[in-house]
Amino acid sequence: MGYQTTAEKMNAIFSDLSKDYLIYAPKRFVGDGTFTDIDTIRYGEITDLSEIEFAEKSDYSFKEVLLPISETLFYFTENEMKEADAPKKGAIVFLRSCDLHGLKRMDTIYLENGAVDTYYKRLRDNTKFILMGCENSFENCFCVSMGTQKSDDYDAYLKVDGDTVLVDSHWDYLDTALTGATQTQVIADSVTANDTVVTIPETVPQSLFDAPFWEEYGNRCIACGRCNFVCPTCTCFTMQDIFYTDNGKAGERRRVWASCHVDGYTDMAGGHAFRNDKGQRMRFKVMHKVNDYKRRFGTHMCIGCGRCDDVCPEYISFANCINKLNALVNDSAKEEN
């Protein structure tokens, strides 16, 4: 149901909701960026709609709400262990359409890919998702190419226009809370085109896996992992077993984000690492995002948010890599004919 209400009313509703939910949204963190006097837009808790950064794309995605960068799974002593408590409150997450599609990718990996991940599920089950519209495409976005520019799979859509707030609710609680508000049809803002257009090859022949094409990335990539950390569909983690220094017999197991670009990702017992070359790491990531994942799960993994292109300190464009790969696939197909 669509409603028109006021920012004051909506803030009051969120204030009530905050008793049971932590509310997360993209916020401006002033001076928090890599360089001096550069802000970061990333997820943080809010108490008022005015704190939400609607005008710009967030540098980091919402994924850290459901998949914390560092998450303690359980505590152990000599003979016993105890699972870490789940957060007492649920979560409400403001996010854009592309990221809502990213959520599906996370669900696929953590809920539908073999055993259910309980740590993910317990957060996921208590999270509500509120769509933020996109009036304009941002730099490096290619959601239209990926078909992620629209989504109806939200608990609510919310648009702030000065003191007016438009809401499309799929959530009973909000419908009740908004009783008496003006009912109106609310259609989420979405873009129909992006400046960046990406063409994904249908299939990539095995012969291109070792193509010289990837070597250039070996020289350019610095293995910082930023492309993975900002990506809403990168879900890899690794484990850290900590023994408390005062005791040594008690400790905890944490899981933390991992990156297929960062050194150590392919390290195995005995010290062998099978993807030392950074060009091969690029190939692995790109093929996972736009080839392997689809073969396994039916949709591409990449949702076209373009954050990897926004963040890369070496100006490596993932979007351009796909397009170049597509040209290469077409060329190799011609050669075979």
Partner: peptide
């Protein structure tokens, strides 16, 4: 130490290289 970073405040010259190179803020 235990996978987390300890900064030697006596040595640190405040150059910000850690900030510049951190991929997660």
């Amino acid at each position: 130490e235990n996978y987390r970073i300890v900064r030697n405040t006596e040595k640190c010259v405040g150059c910000g290289e850690c900030v510049i190179n951190c991929p997660t803020r």
